[in-house]
Amino acid sequence: MTISFILNGEDMIHTAESHQSLLSVMQQHFTLAQSHAPCEKTYCQRCLILLDNKLMLACRVPFFMVRRKEVITLEGWKLTEEYRLLKNHMEKSSVVFCPSCTDLRLFTYHSCGEALAIGEPWELQRLMSDIPCRCGTMEEVTQALETYGDKRGGNHVGKK
């Protein structure tokens, strides 16, 4: 099937099998999400995307679902000002930057503002722990994000 959608700010018209996952389409045709081999079982969270501003897993999104929608991948989000600010803050907070998970944690944090604003104080911790990694930097990333939320006034965990 041929559908139109927006990928990282660019209009796309693309043809693929309707039941193919968005992840495989991105990997095969757009050279995106290449840096890792996702589990395709929703566990690893290495294929996070924003579909119409909602955080989803590309391995579970069939191609037909992106029709007339906007897709932002991690690669696309890394070109934004928000990412630059977050990364600067991580560097200032002396967080050891794990190439496998830190970007994903920042992407998750950026995408879950609404949930964090109305959530419990431990909501951020839970979101971060959903992304499995053996690097052991989860605690320091979470702490740095908490201070980032305090400074910016947005994404303030646990504040109604």
Binding site: T42, Q45, L48, K54, L55, M56, L57, R60, V61, T108, C112, A115, R126, L127, D130
Partner: peptide
């Protein structure tokens, strides 16, 4: 609801 899957799965 908060214990179901993970955040991106709950969006879907």
């Amino acid at each position: 609801l908060k214990t179901l899957g993970n955040y991106p799965l709950r969006n879907q």
